[in-house]
Structure formats: C-alpha cells, structure tokens
Simulated scan of single mutants.
Amino acid sequence: MSTAETLLRIEVPLSSAGAPLPHVFADEGRLLVAYLADTPDTSFDGTNPRSVSPLTGNQSVAILTAEPYLAFQFGPPNDESISGHRLYPLGLRAYEAFEVRNSSWIASLEKANQVHSSHTPELFSDYLHFILTFHDSTLEFIAKSFSTSLRKGAVLTALMEAAGEGV
C-alpha cells in the first residue's frame, strides 16, 4: 500500500526573486547548485535596477551540495506556471524549498531498478526528494542529504570554486 506524497517546507538560503541565476554542475556522484541569495541591497533606492550576470562579482551566492545524489531535473515550471506542477495542490510555491515525503519519483526509480539482478529496495531507502523553486526554473533532486553555504563573489566563479574543492 502506498502513502500519498506530502510536502515539508525546508530551510535553505532564499533565492533572489529577481534573477537568482541558478547554475547546476553534476557528475555521477555530486550535484552542485549555485544561485544568487536574497540579500537586501542597502544601496538600492528602488529606481534604476541594476542588471547582474553570472560573472557579476561581490554577490551573495548560495552553494547547494548533494553528495551522493541519485537524480536531478532542472527546468520548468517557472514562478508564473508553478500552479501547473503536480505538487502545487500540496503546497508547492515559488521561491521556496521542500522535501517531498513518500516520493512517487523515488518509487518509480526503485521500480525501474527491479530488473537488476542485485536489486534490493533498501538501495533506495535512504534517499530523499527535494524541490527548490526559482524565478525562471525549478530544481528537483534525489539525494541522501545536502548542505548549503553562502559565499561572496560571482555565481559562476563560486560554482567553479566549489566544484574544484570536491576533487
């Protein structure tokens, strides 16, 4: 008997609502995500918003690290179409992070792996399903756990530095 999926809101550094510029780096064992964190800009007076790019320095950058991870998907929906996501009726919202309890995604991966001669359901029992929603995209990933940290710099530079640290 399967239990219905539920969402549990989790705490991560909030992403910038304007342009968080999330960047993903993944290999078969480690998932890294860098994005602009939501920090107040005391120099901004509400006029003439400034444009930032992945190379704009002196930004507050959140780094999410999942190692090991099992799978990820990155793309739609954005904040304007988040209501079309299958988990929206359970409370999924833009600019937030969640753990999906009783994940149907994990269940489907476990079921697909049953054809492997060494399969046991326990291979999947320690994995959790997480969702982070950004302005223009949504990141879902399955991992045993993850950590976050904050850095100062440019998104792309911070991501490449974090990627080099794990080598």
Rank of each mutant, 00 (worst) to 15 (best):
Y35F: 11
S81E: 11
T56P: 10
P13H: 08
H135A: 15
P76S: 11
E67A: 04
A26T: 02
L31Q: 00
G75C: 01
A4M: 05
L156C: 09
L70E: 03
E28Y: 05
N48G: 07
F130R: 09
G91S: 08
E11M: 03
T65V: 06
F98K: 03
A17T: 10
S137V: 04
L87R: 02
N113W: 10
P77H: 11
D45L: 06
G46I: 04
L32M: 08
E99Y: 03
F44C: 00
T56S: 15
S81T: 13
E99D: 09
E165C: 09
E11H: 07
T56D: 11
Q114H: 08
T157C: 08
M160A: 15
T65R: 04
I10C: 00
H116M: 13
A26V: 01
S104T: 07
Y69K: 02
L8K: 13
I10A: 00
Y35A: 03
S137C: 14
L123W: 00
E96P: 01
E161L: 11
N113S: 15
I131W: 04
L64M: 14
S15R: 03
E96G: 03
A71Q: 02
L156G: 10
T6V: 00
A97Q: 05
A158I: 01
T6D: 00
S118A: 15
S125D: 13
E80F: 10
E165V: 02
D41K: 11
A143F: 11
G164V: 14
E67Q: 07
P68E: 03
F124P: 03
I63N: 01
E11W: 01
E5C: 05
L55P: 00
V52Q: 12
A154L: 07
A154Q: 11
P54K: 07
P54D: 06
G164Q: 15
W105E: 11
D27E: 11
S2A: 05
P76F: 08
E80T: 14
V155K: 07
V12M: 09
H135K: 14
A37F: 09
T39E: 01
L7D: 01
E96L: 12
L128N: 14
P121L: 13
R30S: 10
Q73S: 15
G153C: 05
M160T: 15
P77Q: 09
T47Y: 07
L32R: 02
S147D: 14
L90R: 10
T138Q: 15
E80L: 13
A107Q: 11
A158C: 15
I131G: 02
D27M: 08
G18H: 07
S118N: 14
E5N: 02
P76Q: 07
I142L: 11
L92A: 09
N48A: 05
F130K: 08
P40A: 06
T138H: 14
P54I: 10
G164F: 13
S104W: 00
T56N: 12
V33H: 06
P13I: 01
S145I: 05
